[in-house]
């Protein structure tokens, strides 16, 4: 399977790729493929169902979560900041976007894409006589 980040500069900042003045974070992901399906899991703490978006267009999968900035508080220690998430992957045609299932729980987005029937490995029985 060909699967690669679209733009190597995304690592530092996704602004070049999104062409948006807004700052985006690149969520950490696990991508695992089995014979049946591809599973993408992304850590997106702070995202909620209002802001989450998943797109599949011309073989490009986009994960996006819009997060509204929290009101300013009197911070004594600040190690993270709610920032919107954005990341893209190029997927091969082996996966069927019609059969995608996504869920979000505990801040982790899980997307499962089933493989098309035609590309699933198949064992062919041999008749001996």
């Amino acid at each position: 399977m060909k699967e690669q980040a679209l733009n190597s500069r995304q690592t530092l900042s996704d602004n070049d790729a999104t062409r948006s003045p807004q700052r985006f974070l690149r969520p950490a992901v696990d991508i695992v493929e089995t014979e049946q399906a591809l599973t993408v899991r992304a850590d997106m703490p702070g995202a909620n169902k209002e802001g989450l978006e998943l797109h599949m267009e011309q073989g490009i999968l986009t994960l996006k979560a819009q997060i509204s900035a929290p009101e300013d508080k009197n911070y004594l220690l600040r190690e993270f900041k709610a920032t919107s998430y954005w990341r893209q992957f190029q997927l091969s045609d082996d996966f069927d976007p019609e059969q995608a299932v996504a869920k979000f729980s505990n801040g982790v987005l899980t997307l499962t894409l089933a493989k098309r029937e035609a590309v699933k490995p198949r064992r062919i029985a041999i008749n001996y006589n």
Binding site: T11, L25, K73, Y75, L77, E79, F80
Partner: peptide, 25 residues
Amino acid sequence: ALGPMSTPTFLPGSTSGDYPRLNIS
């Protein structure tokens, strides 16, 4: 790259910093 604010990830083992990340107000 951009300091701790740029990494929302939870990565035991691969960072030297403290985790989980905390905000205290």
